[in-house]
Amino acid sequence: MDQKVMVVSVLEWGAATPRNKETLRGPAQRVIIHHTALANCKDQKDCMDQLVSIQRMHMKERAFDNIGYNFLVGGDGTVYEGRGWGVVGAHTKGNNHDSLGIAFMGNFNYDTPSKEAISSVRQLLESGVCEGFLHPQFVLFGHRDLGNTECPGQKLYAALPQLRRST
């Protein structure tokens, strides 16, 4: 798949400036899938408002340097830049220095991830491999595989095989 996914940049969604930024030492070896466990955002404006709120909470309440995830995806398939490529995230305690964290926006204990969101994340992963940010043999996990959590929700966790590489 040579199709490059369009990503809404941090400037476009109105992100605050990160306090610090640590670079990964090479291509990410693992991809860790999360959900925000919030309401599904209805449109781009709703999603961007939610992103600002998530970043504020991560920086103020959790004392992160930035929003914890590298990327987030709305139900319409729009991908939003969080920390972006090649940056150490704050999404999975003890597992951030060799991974990429992608959060589906919504609560997938109850909701099924949309075909659009699944397709966009597949394209994002392909793009990351093509651009050298993601190891071609990356391993994909749900957050619950690496921590004591329900994340990314039962219905998204069940959909993870759709994101795994077919080659």
Rank of each mutant, 00 (worst) to 15 (best):
Leu11Gln: 14
Phe133Thr: 06
Leu140His: 08
Tyr80Cys: 05
Leu146Glu: 07
His97Trp: 09
Ser127Leu: 15
Val88Glu: 11
Trp85Thr: 06
Asn20Cys: 09
Asp43Ile: 02
Pro161Leu: 04
Cys130Thr: 15
Gly26Pro: 02
Ala39Thr: 13
Gly153Leu: 04
Pro113His: 04
Tyr69Met: 13
Lys45Ile: 12
Gln3Trp: 11
Asn109Gln: 15
Leu160Trp: 02
Ala39Phe: 11
Ala159Leu: 04
Met1Ser: 13
Phe138Ser: 01
Leu124His: 04
Leu163Trp: 04
Cys151Pro: 01
Gly26Tyr: 05
Gly89Asp: 06
Asn66Arg: 08
Gly75Gln: 11
Gln55Lys: 01
Ser127Phe: 13
Leu38Tyr: 12
Gln154Cys: 11
Tyr69Cys: 05
His91Phe: 10
Gly153Arg: 04
Ile67Val: 10
Leu134Pro: 03
Gly68Met: 00
Ala39Lys: 14
Gln123Phe: 01
Gly75Trp: 00
Gln29Asp: 12
Arg165Leu: 10
Gly74Asn: 04
Arg25Thr: 12
Val88Ala: 10
Ile54Ala: 02
Met105Glu: 10
His58Lys: 07
Gly106Arg: 06
Lys93Phe: 14
Ile118Pro: 04
Ala103Met: 03
Arg62His: 05
Lys4Cys: 03
Asp2Gln: 14
His97Val: 11
Gln3Asn: 06
Gly142Phe: 08
Trp85His: 08
Gln154Tyr: 07
Met59His: 00
Lys4Glu: 14
Arg164Pro: 00
Thr23Phe: 09
Asp2Trp: 13
Lys115Tyr: 07
Ala158Gly: 04
Ile67Ala: 01
Arg30Asp: 11
Ile54Met: 06
Met1Ile: 08
Arg30Cys: 04
Gly82Glu: 02
Thr112Asp: 12
Asn148Phe: 13
Arg30Gln: 13
Leu163Gln: 05
Leu124Gly: 02
Asp145Leu: 07
Ala63Phe: 02
Leu124Cys: 03
His97Gly: 06
Thr36Gly: 06
Glu150Gly: 12
Leu51Phe: 04
Leu160Gly: 02
Pro152Gly: 09
Ala15Gly: 02
Arg122Phe: 07
Glu126Val: 10
Arg164Leu: 08
Gly77Leu: 03
His58Asp: 13
Asp46Trp: 08
Ile32Thr: 02
Val5Gln: 09
Pro18Asn: 06
Leu100Val: 12
Ala15Leu: 01
Arg144His: 13
Gln44Ile: 11
Met6Pro: 00
Pro152Lys: 12
Asn66Gln: 09
Ala16Pro: 06
Ser114Met: 07
Ile102Tyr: 05
Val5Arg: 05
Lys115Cys: 03
Ser127Lys: 15
Asp145Tyr: 07
Trp85Asp: 06
Asp76Trp: 02
Lys42Cys: 05
